[in-house]
Write a protein that binds this DNA or RNA. Structure first.
Length: 823
RNA sequence: GCCAGCGUGGCGAAAUGGCAGACGCACGGGACUUAAAAUCCCGGGACCUUAAAAAGUCGUGUGGGUUCGAGUCCCACCGCUGGCACCA
């Protein structure tokens, strides 16, 4: 992997340099370099040694965490700390991708497939490292308002974080001491809850089964006993309506316990992909238990169904089929009662499946209230009664941070055994950094998820009997903070020096952070979310001085293949920059990419378009160079004899039309119009229109018999950011004529435009009759409104257009237009 | 299904509510050339009329609205792109 990476870096570096980009190479870094990832590991230690204090809403050192009274033993205290750390270990079902041989973060799974490669992902319980990004959900959401990103990108992050306000409501389980809590965004519909659904994995299922169906009392599933059976539940339909992959016995299950077991197995075995595909078809089984609705004491049946997710809210819901689409589908399928509790304000709308706000009905003390009022009143009531409270839920999950890869930063963590023989983890000291990976012959992933590093026994086992963590960090770790390292790339004593950090990150004043970050939207909920999270932790710990890493972010559009499709090897529509450069040169390549259209737009590549800008660069060349001497140039281009080539190139003469004389006012106007446009367009990153302005200038300048050198010099400065090679070459040639020093164009100050030179004496303005263009008249710029009106009425065409009509009204926009309203 | 964004010539695209199509590509005609390439000049939304033009009509996804005036603002719909998706 190191060899491949180094070869790739060399190739990219060569390509970037061949394009003539002005990077500061003294700040170059590689996330794979131990001098760099030492600090990645160092930041991990910061995360490991911190906890999120909900009272201060900030990360703090783990040392500030106070132990609860019952944490008396060392083991208990360690376990308590470990449960609060920002980096923690969790044994839970994770996204396992067999093809890649590694686990993946939620953000890396798209439609049940891996983001890289598109391979199937399944759920598998594994011991993995997690980062507590959920603690930052609120700040990650709120601080989006402080940064200058596109709305669509902010919206993607908002959706991913997925904040929703609602209430938690406690339900007592009938005939037992158990209770469970559901989360709902619609507490106002509580009176319409006709059943409850638990996620198949829900803990309560294990508790209520033995309580409702005591061991050793087999019950006929289809019959049940009177108090366990709901007349509204058609047991036979339960069996009949299961999907084919959930095989139920023909006569139903002998006991509900069996049915529940079978259903849980069925739900657990589904891959993410299957879950998505089967999403339309509701499945579930009745547990036999009932819950008591706290608002009216009604007994409602408890079901388990996989449309309720264990990982969101409380893993349990109150189902209100009348006003929730999913509950409605489920209730229809299993013949569960549907009770209306919300009346649409629009009388034409059917209340069945109505999920919007309306007015509460059949709802006791909240009947007649509008939905927001009803929510507020019932929430207050629930809190008063001690059976519920307002809460906020987020869709965001903690970040699965470990991978089963050889090529990743090793965790600075070792495992030890306590007195009872239980394993626990411990951080290595900062002095142990960087933790280097061992050299391995076989670094490939394993089929069972065992990390490749586990093969290096000599590396894993330490003399004191402890063992090293063998998982590695994901590729995001290194990219989470690289922008900070750019500020101080060679610092050996800190991840970034305080002064450097302050100087660069605060240089924007009111716009703190990276001034401008250009990148694709594919990182919306990956890199851009992770980096914000790390940055906020570093901010809380006093390591950086801004709350956000990237102040302004611009998404460049994707360049599609010539066929309008995404470039891909399989389609054979990939454009290799090396080929374009070989044929047209770096300047044409750069110019074309900027000329294609707005930076943010997705647009197809068109080689003909490259030829177009190449031709433009040719025109620029001929604007400066004597056309007769071009013969020499062509010969020089084709000759292979280097010394002869040099001689021929020397013969190329500047155009005799270029003279060191004062420019006419028309020439200055042409130049300054161009300076204004290019300057403003560069600021707004409208490169396409800036280039078109330069084309207009060149088209005009080509017609000049005498070309003042000062005008051409300034034009070259405008061209330089776009086509630096050609601009610099012509700039140095011009120095033979003008008295200006021949220093590099790079150091010349950007030209300023003079508004006084752009003033027009006479302008053409359109004259409309009833909004339709009828004539264009020339008029002095200083003309008054009355003069404009008079001039418009004097036009023969206008006279003809209003003949036989009465002019009712005249609209005059100074320096813009005249419109006559005539009837 | 939900959220966001976008619909302008044959194509990439311009256009603070004020001359729609700048600039470029493709195309047509001409000059130069023995010829071609390169280069230079001219033309160019559609329709109607014409030998040619002028003039005229229509035209920014569709239908409505606001306005003296709409590609631009508002409402509804259609289509495309991106994102999310059983998140209670």
């Amino acid at each position: 992997p190191r060899k491949t990476t180094e070869a790739n870096i060399a190739n990219f570096t060569r390509q970037i340099k061949s394009l003539g980009f002005s990077y500061d190479w003294s700040r170059e870094l590689a996330t794979t370099d131990p001098d760099y990832f030492k600090w990645t590991q160092w930041i991990f230690l910061k995360l490991y040694n911190s906890w999120f204090n909900p009272e201060t809403n900030k990360a703090e050192s783990i040392d500030t965490l106070k132990f609860p009274a019952d944490c008396t033993t060392e083991e208990k205290q360690r376990a308590y700390r470990d449960s609060k750390r920002l980096a923690y270990v969790s044994e839970a079902p994770v996204n396992w991708c067999p093809e890649l041989g590694t686990v993946l973060a939620n953000e890396e799974v798209i439609d049940g497939k891996s983001e890289v490669g598109g391979f199937p992902v399944i759920r598998k319980p594994m011991l993995q490292w997690m980062l507590r990004i959920t603690a930052y959900a609120e700040r990650l959401l709120n601080d989006l308002d402080t940064i200058d990103w596109t709305d669509s990108l902010k919206e993607m992050q908002r959706n991913w974080i997925g904040r929703s306000e609602g209430a938690e409501v406690d339900f007592q389980i009938a005939g037992s001491s158990f209770k469970t809590t559901v989360f709902t965004t619609r507490p106002d519909t509580l009176f319409g809850a006709t059943y409850m659904v638990l996620a198949p994995e829900h803990k309560l299922v294990d508790q209520i089964i033995p309580s409702v169906w005591p061991e050793g009392t087999p019950v006929d599933w289809k019959g049940g006993t009177a108090n366990q059976r709901s007349s509204s539940i058609d047991q036979s339909s339960i069996v009949a309506n299961q999907p084919s992959s959930f095989v139920a016995p023909k006569d139903g299950f002998a006991t509900p316990t069996e049915a529940i077991k079978a259903y849980r197995a069925f739900a657990a075995g589904k891959s993410d992909l299957e879950r998505t595909e089967l999403a339309k078809d509701k499945t579930g089984v009745f547990t036999g238990a009932y819950a008591i609705n706290p608002v009216n004491g009604e007994k409602i049946p408890i079901w388990i169904a996989d449309y309720v997710l264990a990982s969101y809210g409380t893993g349990a819901i109150m189902a209100v089929p009348a006003h929730d689409t999913r509950d409605f589908e489920f209730a229809k399928k299993f013949n569960l009662p549907v009770i209306q509790v919300v009346q649409p304000t629009d009388s034409k709308t059917d209340w069945q499946g109505f999920t919007d706000d309306g007015v509460s009905v059949n709802s006791g003390f909240i009947t007649g209230l509008s939905t927001p009022e009803a929510k507020a009143k019932i929430s207050a009531w629930l809190e008063e009664q001690g059976v519920g409270e307002k809460t906020i839920n987020y869709k965001l999950r903690d970040w699965l941070f470990s991978r089963q890869r050889y090529w990743g930063e090793p965790f600075p963590i070792i495992w030890k055994k306590d007195a009872a023989g239980n394993l626990y983890h411990e951080a290595l000291p900062e002095s142990a950094l960087p933790v280097l990976p061992p050299t391995l012959e076989d670094y490939k992933p394993t089929a069972d998820g065992q990390p490749p590093l586990a093969r290096a026994a000599g590396w894993v086992n330490l003399p004191d009997g402890s063992t090293r963590e063998t998982n590695t960090m994901p590729q995001w770790a290194g990219s989470c903070w690289y922008y900070l390292r750019y500020l101080d790339a060679k610092n050996n004593s800190a991840f970034v020096g305080k002064d450097a950090e302050n100087y660069w990150m605060k240089s924007g004043g009111e716009k703190p952070g990276v001034d401008l970050y250009v990148g694709g939207t594919e990182h919306a909920v990956l890199h851009l979310l992770y980096a914000r999270f790390w940055h906020k932790v570093l901010f809380d710990l006093g390591q950086v001085s801004t709350a956000e890493p990237f102040f302004k972010l611009v998404n460049q559009g994707l360049i599609l293949g010539e066929d309008g499709q995404k470039m891909s090897k399989s389609r054979g529509n990939v454009v290799n920059p090396d080929d374009v450069l070989a044929e047209f040169g770096a300047d044409a390549f750069r110019l074309y990419e900027m000329f294609m259209g707005p930076l943010q737009d997705t647009k197809p590549w068109n080689t003909r378009g490259v030829e177009g800008v190449y031709r433009f660069l040719g025109r620029v060349w001929r604007l400066f160079v004597d056309e007769k001497s071009e013969v020499e140039f062509e010969q020089a281009e084709t000759t292979t004899d280097a010394s002869k080539q040099g001689e021929l190139l020397k013969l190329i003469q500047l155009s005799p039309a270029i003279k060191d004389i004062a420019a006419t006012s028309a020439q200055l106007k042409t130049l300054h119009t161009c300076i204004k446009k290019v300057t403003e367009d560069l600021d707004g990153m409208r490169f396409n229109t800036a280039i078109s302005a330069m084309m207009v200038f060149v088209n005009e300048a080509m017609t000049w018999e005498v070309k003042p050198v000062a005008v051409l010099r300034e034009f070259l400065q405008l061209l330089a950011p776009f086509a630096p090679h050609l601009a610099e070459e012509l700039w140095s040639r011009l120095s033979t004529i003008s008295q200006q020093p021949s220093t590099s164009l790079t150091y010349a100050a950007w030209p300023k435009f003079d508004p006084a030179l752009l003033v027009e004496n006479e302008i053409e303005i359109p004259v409309q009759v009833n909004g339709k263009l009828r004539d264009v008249i020339k008029i002095a710029t200083t003309a008054s409104q009355a003069e404009m009106e008079t001039a418009a009425l004097a036009s023969e065409k206008i006279k003809a257009a209003i003949a036989g009509k009465t002019v009712k009204k005249v609209i005059v926009v100074p320096k813009k237009m005249v419109n006559l309203v005539a009837v």
